[in-house]
Simulated assay, not measured.
Amino acid sequence: MTRVTKKNKLSFYIQGFTRGLLPVKSLEKKVSKLYSVLSKEEVNNVERRVDYYNKICSQTEVAHQGTYIKDLLKPKTPKAYYFDTYEYARYFPENHLIDFAFGDVNTILNLPMITKSRPINGNNENNILLNLDKARHFVSVNDSLNYSQKKDKMIGRAAVFQEHRIKFYENYYNSTLCDLGQVNKNGGNPDWIKPKISIADHLKNKFILSLEGNDVATNLKWIMSSNSIAVSPPLKMETWYMEGTLKPDEHFIGINEDYKNLEEKLQYYIDHESEAKDIINNAKEYRAQFNNKNVENLISILVLQKYFNYIR
């Protein structure tokens, strides 16, 4: 039976508020303890990823627009971003100022800020990535179906507002290789509307559409933990998942920017099952690097430490 692992929202909020009531270890003790349980290879990976997420490498003076760390415990909407930031910011002095841009960020910021997302291309160093809204984004599945047991189709269920998603649906809604549905009732095209379906029902298909929305495609991470394959045009946005390091036809099925080779690519991987399974294995291996809680905690703290060291 396919199992989906995601954090309960209520327990997430309770945990978030509770952290503000608990004593906090010193930064040095916390970092030292996390380092002590990691291998040399894991430490090298930590350092590489810290520099990927936080590219600031010199002292930078900014006119702060942010808030004090202690005030992260007075969350506004979206609350999850405040709790996810405070989980690691609490190891630093509570009167440190922190600048952030919460929500879906798809532009390069004009000063260094903590954020969930950034464009892959361009001078994006001002967008300092932290694993924000992770309860929603970092979902994992234990897929009970093998690739060969699945339907020879690409399934897609999405809110269809953006021009690029409308264009995709216009091209492929009636394709015999696709099962597409629009889940929003306003906007888009009323002829495309279908009910939402579960992740388990998505995973009955060999291919799953992963189209970026306001920033990244939320479903990419759980698809890459399954025995189905994500299908996407060139990626433009990235988050903690380091989407900028993913390679088409190695970690997902890459289609052209204009989508015109979709059916050709789907048919190719239907006909070449061993190559499809290679993509699945590569995707799972990539996804697994985010499963070590000690690694993820240490990287998160060090990203913030680097921020506080360089930003004045």
Rank of each mutant, 00 (worst) to 15 (best):
I120H: 01
I166L: 15
D71P: 07
T5G: 15
F252E: 02
L262A: 02
T77Q: 14
V216L: 11
F138M: 13
L38R: 06
W192Q: 08
D191A: 15
K236W: 01
H272F: 03
A276V: 02
S36K: 07
P93W: 11
E47I: 13
I114G: 04
A230H: 08
F100I: 02
K221C: 03
V31Y: 02
R19V: 06
G244I: 10
D249N: 15
M224H: 03
H272I: 04
L235G: 08
H202G: 08
I166S: 08
K79R: 12
E250W: 01
R287C: 04
Q59I: 14
D215L: 00
Y268E: 01
R3A: 11
F207R: 08
K306L: 02
E273K: 11
V141R: 00
E212K: 04
V303C: 05
K33A: 11
N8G: 04
S39C: 05
P78D: 05
L211Q: 05
I155F: 00
E275T: 11
K185M: 12
I120R: 09
D104K: 08
A101R: 10
T18G: 00
F290G: 02
V37L: 12
I299W: 00
M154L: 15
M113D: 02
Y13S: 05
L209K: 01
S144E: 15
V295H: 02
Y268C: 00
L129C: 11
L246H: 09
K185S: 12
M1V: 14
F92Y: 07
K134R: 15
I229P: 04
T67M: 12
K30M: 12
L302Y: 00
F102H: 09
K30A: 13
K277V: 06
A158F: 00
I69P: 04
L304K: 03
E263M: 07
D71K: 09
K76G: 13
E163N: 10
E163M: 03
Q182E: 13
R49F: 13
A101W: 07
S140Y: 14
Y173A: 08
D71G: 06
T218A: 15
E273H: 01
L203K: 02
E28D: 15
S274T: 13
R312I: 13
H164Q: 09
E273D: 10
N44T: 12
N123H: 15
L145C: 11
L38S: 00
I255K: 04
T176S: 15
Y82E: 00
N106P: 05
S226P: 08
V295E: 13
S274P: 05
S175H: 06
F17A: 10
G66A: 02
L209M: 15
G244D: 09
T18D: 09
M237D: 00
E263T: 06
I208C: 12
E41S: 14
L211A: 10
K206V: 06
